[in-house]
């Protein structure tokens, strides 16, 4: 039985999809972008980051791309990752799901308008 790696979408994977929404990034840049967009709450380690990247690659939500400024061979060559169309849809669906939860929280007066 194939493993359901991204169902439901883990938080780390969702943050990686968001980080790749507007530009292609390599692993370390993804980690920094996630740290920035979560205000330092999430700092991805190598296991979590590349475990999620591998799952996203296998699901076709991101793809590896070559970067024109990087050498094409050697140990220092970085892998850059790009959000695919499917990945964008999944990220949008996850964001809408979270927005729906947010609306409910506001309706129940758990959250006020200060957020978002």
């Amino acid at each position: 039985m194939p493993k359901q790696k991204l169902s439901p979408l883990p938080s780390a994977a969702f943050q990686i999809l968001l980080a790749l929404a507007d530009s292609d990034l390599h692993g370390y840049a993804i980690m920094r972008r996630v740290e920035e967009q979560t205000e330092g709450r999430i700092r991805l380690g190598p296991g979590t980051l590349y475990g999620s990247v591998q799952a996203l690659l296998e699901e076709g939500l991101i793809e590896e791309v070559s970067h024109p400024g990087e050498p094409q061979s050697g140990h220092e060559r970085r892998r850059y990752y790009r959000l695919t169309t499917g990945g964008r849809k999944v990220a949008r669906a996850e964001a809408e799901r979270l927005a729906g939860i947010l609306r409910v929280a506001r309706a129940r007066k758990i959250l006020r308008g200060d957020y978002v």
Binding site: K3, K5, G45, P46, G47, G51, Q54, A55
Partner: peptide
């Protein structure tokens, strides 16, 4: 923390 959480997850999912 990443080693404690990420390592089992990688072994499980990959």
């Amino acid at each position: 923390v990443d080693l404690a959480i990420g390592l089992p997850a990688v072994w499980h999912t990959t």
